[in-house]
Every structure is written in structure tokens, then in C-alpha cells.
Design a protein around this nucleic acid. Structure first.
Lengths: 340, 340
DNA sequence: CGGCGGGACGACGTCGATGTCATCGCGCCA
DNA sequence: TGGCGCGATGACATCGACGTCGTCCCGCCG
């Protein structure tokens, strides 16, 4: 800038005025400055406004794994909201490790991001004094954190699971199983609990069948074969999230089993699998939008108490919920057992 | 920092030394300072290093659409490479608009990112003097730009398309069609050209059948029905990218057509579609990694001339390439028509 | 013709952290 | 006991841009 000023025989202040379209500069002087600015390819140093204004017009997003479609849809939504407000988005994968998450959050705070949307890795709040002292607004997404001092956007896991179980039961299934992900995940536990509760409230016989992760193709393979071979056999499986769904569908195909499936987490090609997969749709786009909107509300000065929003899920029926494979008589028998 | 210094009865310089683990501070003094730092929750102002070092330890990624799995895999790979090098990643969707891309690049330059990976929206270089004057390293990914002054990482589109065509012909298909995406995309044009060239080089009869996008379900529906009804009928379709693949598979299912399909762009559930979809695998993860590596090489001072890397594709055979649906005699007849 | 008002412009301080160099104080040796 | 050397520490300038306020000059009016 000093260079430009010298070249144009003005002070840096005048250059500043011209660059920022401030009044108080004679047109001919402004022209001269603009010419030099053009010639020297001068640009403001950007990072400097950070210092004075204390804003970086950048927000951070911490997810588990960016390659997972669930999170990439969230990231796309958050980025769009940010872009609409002339902010940039820094996205980081924390790989579901609380220690990594803490490091990542600290790094984002050090970068002076204006706010953070985070899918928490653990249930415990990140006890980082500097993070709290920074006063940077945070929004929790998809999973709550004990204490709940921050805005939180969740999906209605109990409702989603209930709709899945009820759908299967309505189609005559009486022996259902839940193939959940790692119970370390809050969402996995929520879905398990709702599965068990709904199982009981519908008066289904026997203990609820549940196998939690973390899963590999082997563990899924084992769970499915044992369920299919049990007496009476399991006729329908609910998968706990998109990772589990993928493993389960592959295993079912390889094993030649034709259990009914309801997938928790909808996916783009659900319609194309044979049979088309009925799924609980969570709308990660809406989740990302709501989280970003809550964050920007805080950035605009919203000082109200932390809120928790629970977004509804939607059961997308595509056919995989109907009884298949087993002789129709057995289905009829099962259906005959319905109370009421 | 001044606050800490006053509290600890030392100068800001000494605080600086302690915080940065610089030598020349008595252990007891350092302890005292650390205690105060802890108590006041002091953190370096991050953005400030920008001013002196001129580095932000942040790189930018510009893609078309973050929700598209192809790009989200790229983003995940670039983010991982960046994280390994203690850099942050700002990801922006340019929605395939050159003007938006230009604005986005300018914003990233103003943010003083250290480097940029961009999937160019157009063929023409972004003629922005300030961008070039900034001296910020840029790597082009997936699509080249005229002039080619920057490092570029591409996928072997001609080779990928050739492998797809050859695979289908090897399975007896003689009437193939290409359902390409918008020819505004360089990759779409490359694949079209390779389809036509391979079609000719294999001595297939008749003009190559090509319908380019942009596509909607209607346009895809129309193309597929007209191909299926042509004389002799088309027996195999190559889809131009993951967007087109999705539309085509849905349309085929709805129409009840059983054309063979080879998808350009592999996808996670390709194995689960009925029949499993043979696909040209581009490995977006490797593309993102290579691009990031090239960028960081520049950041470390690599001054060599711009290089272009072309990554190989891999045909993942899953069964959808084999003739289907049509009476076996017609396939046999087609197979009988093979020259040699 | 002199004073006054106002537009145009520049000197200087500011932000947060750090490089540079001066200084301070202490112990040791001649 | 005076001087010297060295480790510890601080004062100050610096980076880039902008806010504040003073200054300068010109034209207009009494």
C-alpha cells in the first residue's frame, strides 16, 4: 500500500480511501491512485480486517467423516447457508475421536472463526476453558452433549425408529431385529432404545433382537445368518445407519437371504436396490440448514437461552418392508397373530 | 497479552517467549507466566501470524457441488492431506458457474489462503490479474484449462471410456449408446469423443449413438425409449457420470427395460443394484490426494514447470455389462457378427 | 482585502505478536 | 575491588490497514 502511495504521490491514507470508496478524494486523485493500484496489482491484505473488526467471516464445521454422504450433505447445506451470508466454511473431519475433536476445535478457535457447527464425538462437553472463554458461538448437530449449554439440532430418532417398527409390524412381521451401529454413538443408543420400547409397546413376543456395532462384514454376516436361522425366524431387519445398511444389504445379497429391510438413513439409490429399500429419511440438508441458521442468529446477536430443535423424520416406503421369500402361509400365520 | 504481562509483572515480550517456548526465560518466571496465561485463558490471536509470516495455513478447494459424492470424496481426501500438514481446508461450491468461480477465487485470495485446488468451471483461464499477481499456487483438478500454466490432475477419460466400450463389445454388444452429461463439461466432451473414436476403431456398424445433456428424467426417458425401440435395438448404454447414471437406472427400472449398462463413475451401491452395475472407477480419493500433494509441493518451494498428471481408471466388472433381457438368440446372433 | 468555512489530504496512533537490540544484574576472576 | 561475560529481560520498532484528528489551501463573503 505504501508502494502504491509513493507511486501515486499520495499518502497511504488516501489510497485507503480510494480503495474503500470513501468520500473526500478529488476525482482526478482517485483516478491516479486507481491506475497505480491496477498497475501494481494491489490487493488488501484481507487477514488484517480480522485484527480490527475481530471477524473473519469464516465459520467452522466439524464432522466425523466428510466422505460419508450423510455428512457431506450436511456440509453442503452449511456451506450454502454460509455463502449466502458471505462467509466461508472450514470443514474438518474429527474421525469421531474426542481428543481429535478437541484439538480441531482449539485450532478453529485459534483461527478466530466466527462460529462453529459441530457433530460432537462424545457425550461429554469439550471441557476447554479457552474454547469457552473465546465466546465463539457453537451449535451442536445430530447429537447432544451433556449439560446442553449450546444450541442443538437433532433428528427425531425415537420417532424415526418407531415409524420403522410400526411399518414392519403393519406388514405382518412379528420377529424383527435391529442391527445397530456402535453404541458409543448417541444416535445408535437412541435408536436401540426406541426399537426396544416400540417392540414392547406393540406387544411383540420374545425379547427384542439387537446386535450393536461397530460392525464389519463378518459381524453383520454372523448376525444375519443367526437371525435367519432362529426359531421362529426373523423376517425383518432394521439397519442402524447408512454404514450398517450398506454392509447388511451386501451380506443379504451374498447370503441369498431375503429378509425385509428398513434402512435407517435414506440413501440416493434406495429405489434401485432390489427390492427398493424402505428407509427412514433424516434430511441432513435440513439439519445442516437449521444448524447454520441457529449459528448465524447467534452471530447477529441473539442472546436467548440455548435451544434444542428436533427435526422430524419421514418414512419413505419403497417395498422392502413387505414380507418376502418366506412361504406366504407363514406370513399369513404371522399376520393372524396380530392382536386386535 | 498485555494483560497477562501486567498480571505476571513481566513484559509482553517475555510472555511471547514463554508461550512460544523460546529459550532465555528463567524457569520460575516461565512458571509464573504460564499460571497467569492459564488463569486468564489467554490464546494467541491466530490471525496475527498472518501479518508477519504471510501464511494462513489454510488452503481452498473449489468444487462444483459438495453434495455430489464425487466431489465430497475429493474434498475428504484434500482435507485429510491438509490436516496431515497442519493446514485447514476451506471448501466452496461454485455451482459450475465461471462467474461464481471467479468471485470465489477472489474471495479466497483476499482471505490469503496459501493455495487453491480448483475444479475449473470453464475451459478458459480465470483472467484475473490480482489472482495471478497474488502468486498463490493453484492446482487444477479433473478438468484442464486452456493455457495450462498450473499443475493439473486429470483422470484418463479416453482410457476409461475405451475400457467401457471394449468391455461391452467383448460381451457381444454391437449397438451401444452413450448418454453423456452436458457437453459444457470438458469431461463429458472427452468421454463422448472417446466413445465415438472407440466405436469407430472397433468397426461397429452405423453412426455412434450419442445423446448429451444436461439431462432431466424426461430427456433420459426419451433417449432410452428411442434407443430401445430402434432397429436394430440398442442393447447397451454407457452413462456419462454419476448424475446421469442415477437418472438412467431409475428410468430403466420404471420403463422395465433391461439394457446393459456401464456406468461412468463408480458408486458405492453399484454392487447392490439389480443387476450389479459394471462401472468405470475414477478414484476421486486418489485425485484429491494427488492434487493436494502437488499443491503442498509448491508451497514447499517447488518451482519446476507446471505438470499434468493423468490418473488411470479401472473398470469394475459387476455383471451389468452382459447382455440381458433380449432373447438369447439375438445375443448369439450379435455375437456371431463379431469380426475375426 | 482579510477572515472564515469547508473540502482534500496527511501524520500519527492502534491492533497483537514478534524480531532486534539495549540493558540489567549477578557471579567470577585478575 | 573493578571489570568482564553472560543469561535474563524489556523497550521499541515492525507488519498492513484504517480511524482520528489536525492541517492546508482555496474560494467566498463582508
Amino acid at each position: 500500500m505504501a508502494e502504491v502511495a509513493a507511486e501515486a504521490h499520495v499518502s497511504v491514507k488516501t489510497v485507503s480511501r480510494v480503495v474503500n470508496h470513501l468520500p473526500g478524494v478529488r476525482p482526478d486523485t482517485a483516478d491516479r491512485v486507481r491506475t497505480v493500484v491496477e498497475r501494481l496489482g494491489f490487493r488488501r491484505s484481507g487477514g488484517i480486517t480480522t485484527m480490527r473488526e475481530g471477524r473473519t467471516f469464516t465459520i467452522g464445521l466439524v464432522v466425523e467423516e466428510l466422505a460419508n454422504p450423510f455428512y457431506s450433505q450436511i456440509a453442503a447445506a452449511v456451506e450454502r447457508e454460509a455463502r449466502m451470508r458471505r462467509h466461508h466454511l472450514i470443514t474438518v473431519s474429527a474421525e469421531n475421536s474426542p481428543s481429535r475433536e478437541r484439538a480441531v476445535l482449539q485450532a478453529l478457535v485459534a483461527r478466530r472463526v466466527d462460529g462453529i457447527v459441530v457433530v460432537p464425538a462424545g457425550d461429554e462437553p469439550v471441557a476447554d476453558p479457552s474454547l469457552e472463554a473465546s465466546g465463539i458461538p457453537i451449535v451442536h448437530l445430530d447429537r447432544p452433549v451433556r449439560g446442553g449449554r449450546y444450541d442443538t439440532v437433532l433428528s427425531d430418532n425415537p420417532g424415526g425408529m418407531r415409524s420403522a417398527v410400526e411399518h414392519l409390524v403393519a406388514h405382518g412381521h412379528r420377529r424383527l431385529a435391529f442391527l445397530g451401529d456402535d453404541p458409543e454413538f448417541w444416535t445408535a443408543r437412541q435408536r436401540r432404545e426406541s426399537f426396544v420400547a416400540t417392540h414392547a409397546s406393540l406387544g411383540l413376543a420374545g425379547p427384542p433382537l439387537v446386535v450393536m456395532g461397530p460392525h464389519t462384514d463378518v459381524s453383520v454376516h454372523h448376525a444375519l445368518t443367526s437371525w435367519a436361522g432362529s426359531r421362529p425366524p426373523v423376517t425383518a431387519v432394521i439397519t442402524g445407519n447408512n454404514r450398517v445398511t450398506l454392509l447388511a444389504l451386501v451380506a443379504l445379497r451374498r447370503l441369498g437371504l431375503s429378509l425385509s429391510v428398513v434402512a435407517y438413513d435414506d440413501f440416493e439409490l434406495a429405489e434401485l436396490v432390489d427390492p427398493p429399500v424402505t428407509a427412514v429419511h433424516q434430511d441432513p440438508t435440513a439439519m445442516g440448514e437449521r444448524a447454520a441458521q441457529a449459528l448465524f442468529a447467534r452471530l447477529l446477536g441473539d442472546e436467548s437461552p440455548a435451544r434444542t430443535v428436533v427435526l422430524p423424520t419421514r418414512l419413505v416406503v419403497r417395498g422392502s418392508g413387505a414380507p418376502r421369500g418366506a412361504p406366504s402361509s407363514s406370513v399369513a400365520a404371522a399376520a393372524g397373530a396380530v392382536v386386535e
